[in-house]
């Protein structure tokens, strides 16, 4: 192969035709509040971990819905399970339980 000094770049697009939504379905099966999120961001705003790292519960859930399982599982490790997000969530998403489910899923779903 010739090295031209440049190369094609990876396409950076969510492709919903190929996204792996198995974890999203599995979490929803075990906790239907997973689907109730309205992306308001109060969980991330109040998050203890989010003050020191770029952890966001909203983003973790969103990544799972786009099939980005590995990064979501990795991110979930940052949660300290303090429960502040459960207090603020206006849709009663069972946030701590969902974190626990993601960690549990680590064994089954980690690609």
């Amino acid at each position: 192969m010739i090295d031209f000094g440049f190369a094609p770049m990876e396409v950076s697009v969510h492709n919903m035709d190929t996204a792996d939504l198995s974890l999203a379905h599995w979490i929803n099966l075990h906790d239907e509040t997973f689907n109730h999120c309205i992306a308001c961001g109060s969980c991330a705003a109040t998050c203890t971990a989010g003050q020191f790292t770029n952890f966001s519960f909203r983003e973790v859930c969103h990544a799972i819905r786009r099939g980005e399982i590995k990064s979501a599982i990795d991110e979930s490790e940052k949660c300290m399970l303090c429960g502040k997000c459960t207090l603020v969530c206006p849709r009663n998403v069972n946030t701590r339980n969902i974190i626990m489910l993601i960690r549990k899923a680590n064994l089954t779903f980690r690609p």
């Binding site: 000094g5 440049f6 190369a7 094609p8 770049m9 396409v11």
Partner: peptide, 14 residues
């Protein structure tokens, strides 16, 4: 700019 050509060729490839 040669260094940017990867960007250019990626569009054609798509």
């Amino acid at each position: 700019v040669q260094a940017n050509r990867g960007y250019s060729i990626s569009a054609s490839k798509k």
